[in-house]
């Protein structure tokens, strides 16, 4: 028990001492995962709503594939991006392997299916509810997508959270395409893995606690935003 409380104190000490290396690692973790989330949402939201509203040839197939890829193992996502970006791969000329950008691409690939599949579900429910209303207004297709995305923003915030959680927590993909380079591609999860392999189990645990606190912080912020909006919306929808 004394040993465990020691770990907790060590992690608190690490946070409050504002250790420059630790801050850099935290910053990089957030930069990579949030960028991946942004890119994935940029493509995932429109694609998800398209799949929800329009039934076209192959839309069912795409939906099935996207759903299946929600379970894509991070190491496989990492391997695919590695083979693409490797010097002997098709995109080797870009020289992107072992850079933070490569990690963003890998995480984007990992969470894009989650964002697409979950936003499709959210928007589809919303579309079903408002279908007649939209018809009566004779909204154009793009207006309809815009309205639906806006109206489902609370559900979509949860979708973003799910994607962010998956991105910030994974280690397999960023290890393969990032390489855990100090001051360049070392994230929270890869440094935890490195400390475990050095046998520094206490430091690894302390880093783990920090990662948890970080993730808790992001979730809390999004939750607060969400509950604020939902009370506002509840007000005029009079539910």
């Amino acid at each position: 028990m004394t040993e465990n409380s020691g770990i907790f104190i060590q992690s608190l000490y690490l946070i409050f001492s504002l250790d420059a290396d630790l801050m850099e690692i935290i910053g990089l973790s957030l930069y990579v995962s949030l960028s991946a989330l942004f890119l994935a949402a940029l493509i995932g939201f429109p694609l998800g709503s398209l799949l929800a509203i329009r039934k076209f040839t192959g839309s069912k197939l795409i939906t099935v594939i996207v759903n299946a890829f929600m379970g894509l193992p991070p190491v496989v996502a990492g391997l695919v991006v590695y083979m693409l970006l490797s010097r002997s791969g098709p995109l080797g000329l870009l020289g992107l392997l072992y850079t933070p950008e490569a990690m963003i691409i890998a995480q984007c690939l990992l969470i894009f299916p989650i964002i697409t599949a979950l936003s499709r579900q959210t928007v589809e429910d919303m579309n079903y509810e408002y279908d007649e209303f939209f018809r009566s207004l004779r909204l154009s297709f793009s207006q309809r997508i815009k309205t639906l995305l806006w109206e489902s923003r609370i559900g979509l915030a949860t979708v973003l959270l799910a994607g962010f959680g998956r991105a910030i927590a994974e280690v397999g993909a960023v290890m393969i395409v990032g390489g855990n380079i100090e001051h360049s591609t070392r994230t929270m999860t890869t440094s935890i893995q490195m400390e475990i392999s050095k046998g520094n189990l206490e430091l690894a645990m302390a880093l783990g606690i920090i990662l948890l606190i970080l993730s808790l912080g992001v979730t809390t912020v999004m939750h607060m935003v969400r509950s604020r909006y939902s009370t506002m919306q509840g007000g005029y929808r009079n539910e």
């Binding site: 940029l42 493509i43 694609l47 398209l50 992107l96």
Partner: peptide, 28 residues
Amino acid sequence: MRLAIIGVVILGLFLLLFSRTDKDRPII
């Protein structure tokens, strides 16, 4: 479908934006 194409184009642009020239590339 048009949205998907726009998405792919945006992703491509990001890739280009990210890419590095060999000169400023660090030694691995």
